[in-house]
Design a protein around this nucleic acid. Structure first.
Length: 327
DNA sequence: GGTGGCACCCCGAGACTTAA
DNA sequence: TTAAGTCTCGGGGTGCCACC
């Protein structure tokens, strides 16, 4: 079907989103523009990359009021699309993945994820969709502050967005085999006001060498209490993995343009590797001579379901290595 | 069809507190 | 470190109207 055969229409199912692009757009304050870009790509069923302005406005009239549509069209111009005069009036040339990733300096695209298109329809859930899209491929624990670094969205707002689109949160807990006498401290991420002391002794004592929850003392206003040390949450979104052929294509072009993707990847800011799926991966990282600058802070290894102290609880065992080491 | 001015109202965002 | 709640203030979304 060509665009000449009929008006564009809204998809009923899903919209394809790219975590890296969503993340950068959120950070740059371009969430309105990126949402329209996703919507335009979704209604462009022929994949020609060109749509009539009037047809696009008609197709998206339930999502964007007239004023907002034209305003976003202006503000996203030359980043996500360009407009030109066709034979039948104004048209939009929607930029593909490569020009957009180039604009933002994104060195590599992971696989895209499909999100429910209905989330794009409401103003309230539109930004939340992008947030979910930015988060959906992260399967390991991640702190609120790391998410803020990634997306520019502060912790309070993250919670609001998660509620809005039904992102599930799962708490993680720290396990250890170290004797309680060996207490260790960790400074709050983001330079918080104090540090926390972990690995306290459980009332009644603990058998040495056995795996047990790491304990911490929390000081309240009137009293202090001992509790299991909690690690950052893991998050589960409604996103479904989509085909990655377009992302592969874009990555190939990025690689060619940058003359060495891996050079580009090494220049991107590193998120500290802290959580490992198994011992092998942890040993491989810690054995390797420093290849990049950065540190592995307070590393943990995933505890398999059968080895957990509490059934159903997500547990991570402290590796017992010094607080940080170079990677 | 496309854009600008204006006014109204909702919501985003930050600061702060309390609790576990 | 996470979670939840309150409060305040400014900005943005939107409708209406006018103009080109």
């Amino acid at each position: 079907m060509s665009y000449r055969e009929g008006a564009l229409s809204l998809p009923h199912g899903t919209v394809k989103t790219y975590p890296e692009i969503s993340r950068v757009a959120l950070r740059e304050g371009l969430h309105r523009e990126i949402a329209l870009w996703y919507a335009l790509r979704a209604i462009d069923k022929t994949g020609s990359g060109k749509v009539d302005v009037s047809e696009a406005r008609q197709a998206l009239k339930d999502i964007y009021p007239r004023r907002s549509f034209y305003r976003i069209l202006r503000s996203g111009k030359d980043i996500f699309w360009e407009t030109f005069e066709g034979k039948r009036g104004s048209r939009i040339r929607i930029f593909g993945l490569y020009p957009v990733t180039s604009y933002f300096g994104i060195p590599y695209l992971t696989r895209p994820y499909n999100m429910p298109f209905k989330m794009l329809k409401k103003t309230q859930t539109r930004k939340a969709l992008l947030y979910a899209s930015a988060l959906c491929h992260i399967k390991k624990p991640i702190s609120r502050l790391s998410i803020q670094d990634m997306t520019g969205i502060p912790p309070q707002k993250q919670r609001v967005l998660e509620k809005r689109v039904g992102i599930e949160k799962h708490p993680n807990f720290a396990m250890t085999r170290e004797p309680p006498k060996k207490r260790r401290t960790a400074v709050m991420e983001g330079g918080g006001p104090s540090h926390f002391e972990y690995n306290h002794e459980r009332p009644g004592g603990d058998p040495p060498g056995e795996k047990r929850p790491e304990l911490m003392i929390v000081k309240g206003k009137a009293k202090e209490w001992i509790k299991d040390r909690r690690l950052p949450n893991t998050y589960k979104t409604q996103a479904q993995p989509a085909g990655k052929s377009l992302a592969k294509k874009a990555n190939k072009r990025i690689k060619e343009a940058a003359k060495g993707l891996f050079m580009a990847r090494q220049q991107e800011p590193l998120f500290l590797i802290r959580f490992f799926n198994n011992n092998k991966k942890f040993e491989r990282v810690s054995r390797n001579t420093p290849k990049r600058e950065g540190t592995c802070d307070d590393p943990f290894i995933w505890v398999k379901p059968g080895d957990r102290l509490k059934r159903g609880r997500l547990e991570w065992e402290w590796t017992g290595v010094p607080k940080s080491f170079p990677i």
